[in-house]
């Protein structure tokens, strides 16, 4: 007797059991589905697609008042330090974002402390060179990683798209960017739709 059909049935049963098991795991989780995705991520997805969510209320309030509160992990600590000097805040990419000394100190500490690990991850490809050469402030959009991830996106979908306007509006297309989730499956470009690499 050919052992093949038996083997197939066994495989089917086994994968069925596994699938049910993981489905159970997913649905039994009381938390929102971020937890579940986080678990998947550590497995077979590029871990860089999720970043530690923003966890400082002062940072969210003060910086989030004008733009998405970018995850500290998007820049290395020295870049945040440059951005957070009183002079740099007074001319913050063309806006005055001056803070009281107390707020500035608190936010700087939060950014510095949470930038470290991802900075190491990004350093070889050069988030460290993000805008540093020109003496201007570092930009997330100038990092090598950012450019590589976005080099195929036509300008008309971003800078030419009134609903997006700029690459700095992460959350305009990455619908879960505010939660630190940049996974491709949550991309929805206004007026265009999903984007598959």
């Amino acid at each position: 007797m050919n052992p093949f059909p038996f083997k197939s049935v066994l495989t089917l049963l086994l994968s069925g059991t596994l699938a049910m098991g993981s489905a159970h795991l997913a649905f039994a989780d009381d938390d929102d589905d971020d937890d579940e995705r986080g678990r998947e991520k550590s497995g077979w997805f590029d871990s860089r697609e999720t970043l530690a969510p923003v966890v400082n209320a002062t940072y969210s309030e003060e910086c989030g008042a004008c733009h998405m509160a970018y995850q500290p992990g998007l820049l290395p600590p020295q870049a945040w330090a440059q951005i957070m000097t009183p002079d740099a805040l007074a001319n913050h990419y063309g806006d005055d974002a001056s803070l009281s000394e107390a707020l500035r100190t608190e936010i700087s500490a939060f950014l510095g402390a949470n930038a470290t690990d991802v900075a190491q991850q990004m350093a070889p490809s050069g988030a460290s060179n993000a805008g540093a050469a020109s003496g201007s402030l570092p930009r997330i959009t100038e990092s090598t990683d950012f450019k590589r991830e976005h080099d195929e996106i036509p300008a008309r979908l971003v800078t030419g798209n009134p609903e997006v306007g700029s690459f700095s509006q992460c959350n305009a297309c990455h619908r879960k960017a505010a939660e630190g989730n940049y996974d491709e499956r949550w991309i929805d470009i206004p007026g265009h739709g999903p984007w598959k690499d």
């Binding site: 007074a90 001056s98 803070l99 009281s100």
Partner: peptide, 14 residues
């Protein structure tokens, strides 16, 4: 009051 002062400072400068 702190918010008022912060934004008046920033926005007047800008």
């Amino acid at each position: 009051p702190a918010k008022i002062e912060k934004w008046l400072t920033r926005n007047c400068r800008w």
